[in-house]
Design a protein around this nucleic acid. Structure first.
Lengths: 228, 228
DNA sequence: CGAGGCGTTGATAAAACTCAAAAACTGTGG
DNA sequence: CCACAGTTTTTGAGTTTTATCAACGCCTCG
């Protein structure tokens, strides 16, 4: 496999990832020996629905979108995996298959730990298990939030929130949308057309300003929060 | 407080709950000493949004609904807590407040373990932590499923699924809906009126049969699965 | 330059919500 | 056992939101 610009080692992975952060040096070294390492180019799939899910997948560098495909062929984005985040929790409790897809949005480096190895690791390193519980607890909270928003708030409100969060996450009033509009749509549970229209609506109301194609500026955060 | 028909002790709790099942006798006894015990009557709240969330809550007996309230006053049901299930994972990783409500749907017995105690317990009992991780992993999977369904499937399809699951869960073709229609509505992210209409529609299509007020019979499971 | 993907816009349609009122059910007390 | 009050459910009519389909414009990149 061709080496990419950044050459990540197993140790990098362990250092980068919050769930491993506060472990002892020895533990980290043990973990490093169990980790395998993969690169994906933008557009490649880390896994697909139906693949056997027998490993925890940690994004060491890059970005990937995780989504499900419904019976009628619609995508629902579940999350964007950022550096340091992981997925595959389903893999941790049974030999089941993935029911979702993960696609790299840019060149992305990934660490994997086999289910069995990880379960043993948790047995041997309670701190790790506790970290995992906390991380999963946080994830449950996020998902509960997402479920509630998607069913109770209008698209315009969801979009407004998304813009606020994105802007806040990047810590800048003028920001570039990190996703294609098509992806924003599936993330918010709607269609690209509606996103387009609602962005126009927010602009017309003077709450945001379109700087360029996908660069925006928040003009009135307070009003954006109050939508719907 | 008046005693209810069943008098549950802390030991009952520990025995009942899957995450404690495979622990050693000693561990179970330790846990039992940390557990406090509460009864709630139907309609009472186990906790409300804004309450400080500093304990893991385990349903020892009964049933409770967990829901969020959106800014515009709509309820979204997140789950029904059955005997042996727990909530409060948000409490496990930070001193945050609850952002959801839990209301007893019948007389319900609950065990609580303080966040601090539980974190220590996990440190000392890796098996417990692993059980927790697995339980939370399962929960994440459920929520991902719920999010996807709610955004990609029609109400009729969601309702059909709900009926199938309920019927399967109770293991009987003729079954009584365990929730009020209002609650089914908030669970499926819709309104009571729509539930009423869609039930009528499914009946007219000959896929289900209304036995009595809230007793139904599945007539054509295959077709129900294919809706939308 | 041209092709293909992405985004916008418009017209239309479908799904579901809202509001309002009637009907059915629940439990209670006489 | 019946009547009543309160709640839940159903039904109807009208409206809103969002999806869909189709066409067009715009970039980007070979």
């Amino acid at each position: 496999m061709a080496k990419l610009a950044h050459d990540h080692t197993a140790e990098d992975c362990v250092e980068l990832v919050p769930i491993f952060k506060n472990l002892s040096k020895v533990d980290k070294q043990t973990i490093a020996t169990l980790v395998t390492h993969h690169h994906y180019r933008s557009g490649e799939y880390l896994f697909s629905a139906g693949d056997s899910a027998d490993a925890l997948i940690i994004v060491a560098h890059g970005q990937a979108k995780v989504f499900q495909m419904s019976a009628n062929g619609k995508e629902q984005m579940l999350r964007i995996l950022q550096t340091g985040e992981f997925d595959g929790e389903a893999a941790l409790f049974s030999n089941s298959d993935h029911n979702s897809y993960a696609e790299a949005l840019m060149d992305t480096a990934v660490c994997q730990i086999k289910r069995q190895d990880f379960q043993k690791l948790m047995q041997a390193t309670p701190e790790l298990a506790v970290n995992m519980v906390n991380a999963l607890g946080r994830r449950v909270g996020q998902l509960e939030q997402q479920t509630t928003e998607v069913t109770t708030a209008s698209v315009e409100s969801r979009l407004a929130n998304y813009l606020l969060e994105t802007s806040a996450g990047l810590n800048q009033a003028v920001f570039t949308l990190p996703l294609k509009k098509k992806d924003i749509a599936t993330y918010l549970g709607t269609t690209p057309e509606t996103i387009s229209r609602k962005l126009a609506a927010l602009t017309k109301k003077g709450l945001i300003e379109k700087i360029s194609n996908n660069k925006f500026k928040i003009l009135d955060a307070d009003q954006l929060m109050l939508i719907d």
